[in-house]
């Protein structure tokens, strides 16, 4: 069964590029541009993995993680931070504390598909 990826990203170009790469790898990709829209999308069809940017309009990506981690409906959903702020200790620590499955760098486009596949192969 095709795995569903929810990409929470407000930059249209990044969403287009990342979406193209993931779709080309045979994955279903949904894009949400804000936390509110992402929660609504999750409620409609629970994705296998959410890739969430940190800096988003309104609530930030950590708020999304906090909300889905507190909601039993999304127990089986993996969550990864997807950001340009790679290597920032404070942000990584906060992400880890919230219980994310991975902290992915947007800049490393070439390893995005591999990283996503590895995450999807990991038992929840």
């Amino acid at each position: 069964m095709t795995k569903k990826i929810l990409l929470i990203e407000d930059d249209a170009d990044i969403a287009t590029i990342s979406g193209e790469l993931l779709r080309s790898a045979g994955l279903d990709v949904l894009v949400a541009t804000s936390v509110e829209k992402a929660i609504a999308a999750c409620a409609e069809t629970t994705p296998d993995l959410a890739l969430v940017d940190i800096r988003l309009p309104g609530q930030n990506g950590f708020e999304f993680v906090r909300r889905v981690r507190a909601d039993d409906r999304f127990h089986d959903m993996r969550v990864a931070i997807y950001t340009v702020h790679e290597g920032e200790a404070a942000l990584m620590a906060e992400a880890e504390e919230l219980g994310v499955d991975a902290y992915l760098s947007k800049s490393q486009t070439e390893v995005l598909v591999d990283s996503v596949r590895r995450l999807l192969a990991t038992p929840v």
């Binding site: 930059d11 170009d13 990044i14 590029i17 193209e20 340009v84 702020h85 947007k106 800049s107 486009t109």
Partner: peptide, 20 residues
């Protein structure tokens, strides 16, 4: 933080688009 984001996001897009 702001400047990092503002500079790295377009760079990421450019790099990602070129790589794709």
């Amino acid at each position: 933080a702001n400047t990092t984001h503002e500079l790295k996001t377009p760079l990421t897009a450019i790099r990602g688009a070129a790589m794709t």
